[in-house]
Design a protein around this nucleic acid. Structure first.
Lengths: 135, 135
DNA sequence: TAAAAGTCCACCAACTTGGTGGGGTAGAAT
DNA sequence: ATTCTACCCCACCAAGTTGGTGGACTTTTA
């Protein structure tokens, strides 16, 4: 399951997608419209900024905004950043791989199956962007 | 990600699948062969028994064994039991559904996408059984 | 320089995860 | 009937994660 943090992140990003190229948006505006705890949202936006997805402007007239076009930001990227691995097992994860002890990856039924699950999921989330989320 | 508990559960079940219809298997045997902490395994097996997947026999010559044929036990069932929801959001979960507040399910891009992910995953885990895991 | 608005750091409660310890109880063998 | 075996059950624990808050500081603009 996605954490609440991830769900908040997607809500905020969807909102910022709607406001794309309309100048900076206040954290407090996002928090209010999307009903996200303000201080918690602050952390999330900062994290998205450090990952180069958002940018911000300080001072009066400041706020947050998308750094790149919404169709350049993949859903998979956001999930990995805020939520962590997409795969169900460390030994089948592409970005968070860890070797599986006591389980020979060469012939492990669970392993093979989880690769299939991973690929089926990636096939969707790697090919959708923020633009697709904002219906 | 699946919890370690879930991974232990699958290892134990795979082992019991190999020993299917060969009489009860000691917890200590499973623990040793699959390198699972004994007391922790105890809890897991008990849970699987309560869910009618395993059965047990007490006293000398006792132990755990599969209650049903390995090809009658779906992977999805085990995941839901030990790990919880398979879907990425409560509002798209079939067995753990919760209404999504502040998000109209009728037009929510994230919602729609997560239904696709759920179905892609279910398509795999609902159609595999313990028999498929034991290569 | 005052106000606006993001940045940063530290802290917190509650919950989950992964695991342990110990006694209780049913069943089988003798 | 006793004793041994092996599952049953309860309580507890440390560490980590999740979701969230408080307050001080810096940058920018008017």
């Amino acid at each position: 399951m996605l954490s609440k943090k991830s769900q908040y992140a997607f809500k905020a990003l969807t909102y910022l997608t709607e406001k794309y190229e309309q100048g900076p948006v206040l954290i407090s505006d996002i928090a209010k419209k999307k009903k996200i705890p303000l201080k918690f949202l602050e952390n999330i936006l900062l994290e998205l900024k450090k990952a180069d997805i958002l940018d911000s402007k300080k001072g009066k007239g400041g706020g947050y905004f998308l750094k790149k076009s919404p169709d350049k930001v993949k859903v998979a990227t956001v999930i990995r950043l805020i939520n962590g691995p997409i795969a169900m097992l460390p030994c089948v994860s592409l970005y968070f791989y860890e070797r599986c002890k006591n389980c020979n990856e060469k012939h492990c039924g669970l392993h093979d199956m989880m690769i299939e699950v991973r690929d089926a999921t990636l096939n969707i989330v790697e090919n959708r962007t923020l633009r697709d989320l904002a219906v």
